[in-house]
Simulated assay, not measured.
Amino acid sequence: MTSPPATRSPRNLPLVEAGSRESALCTIANVAAALETLREVRKHVRGDHKRRLDDVAVILRVIAFDTQATYAITDDEAREFIRNCRPV
Rank of each mutant, 00 (worst) to 15 (best):
V16Q: 05
R61L: 10
R86W: 06
F65K: 11
S23V: 03
P87Q: 04
V62E: 13
T2C: 14
T70Y: 11
T27R: 07
D75A: 04
C26H: 07
C26W: 02
A78C: 02
L53Y: 07
V45K: 03
E40S: 09
D75F: 04
V31H: 01
L13A: 02
H44V: 11
N30M: 10
P14M: 06
D55E: 13
T2D: 15
G19C: 05
R86I: 08
E77Q: 03
E22S: 10
A32I: 12
T37R: 12
R61Y: 09
P4L: 09
V31L: 03
P14I: 06
V16M: 01
A69R: 06
V88T: 15
R8W: 11
R11T: 06
V62L: 09
L13S: 00
E36P: 10
R39S: 10
T27G: 03
I73F: 00
T27V: 13
R51L: 13
Q68E: 01
D55I: 09
I73Y: 01
S3P: 13
A29L: 04
A72I: 02
A78F: 01
D75C: 02
E80M: 05
P5R: 11
N30K: 08
L60S: 04
H44P: 04
T2W: 15
S3E: 13
T27P: 03
A57L: 08
E40W: 07
T74A: 03
H49P: 11
Y71I: 00
R61W: 08
F81T: 00
M1Q: 09
D55H: 09
E36D: 15
T7S: 15
E36L: 10
P87T: 08
R61I: 07
A24G: 01
M1N: 12
F81A: 01
E40P: 05
I82Y: 08
L15M: 14
D66F: 09
E77H: 01
A6E: 13
L13P: 04
P5W: 11
L60H: 08
A57V: 05
G47T: 01
R42C: 04
V56W: 07
I63R: 05
A24M: 01
T27I: 14
R79S: 05
A57D: 06
R11E: 04
H49K: 12
R51Q: 10
E22R: 12
Y71S: 00
L13W: 08
A24N: 00
V56F: 07
R51E: 13
R86G: 00
P14E: 12
A57N: 07
N12R: 09
L13Y: 12
A32Y: 11
R46N: 11
H44W: 11
D76T: 08
A34M: 10
T70W: 13
R83S: 02
P10L: 08
T74Y: 01
A32S: 14
P10D: 12
H49R: 15
E40G: 03
P10N: 09
I73N: 01
R39D: 11
R46L: 12
D76H: 04
A72M: 02
P14V: 12
T70E: 10
F65W: 14
R39W: 14
V56S: 03
D75P: 04
A6L: 15
S3W: 14
T67H: 02
L60Q: 04
D76A: 08
R51F: 14
D66P: 05
A32H: 11
A33P: 09
L53E: 05
P87G: 07
A32T: 14
H44D: 14
K43G: 09
R83E: 10
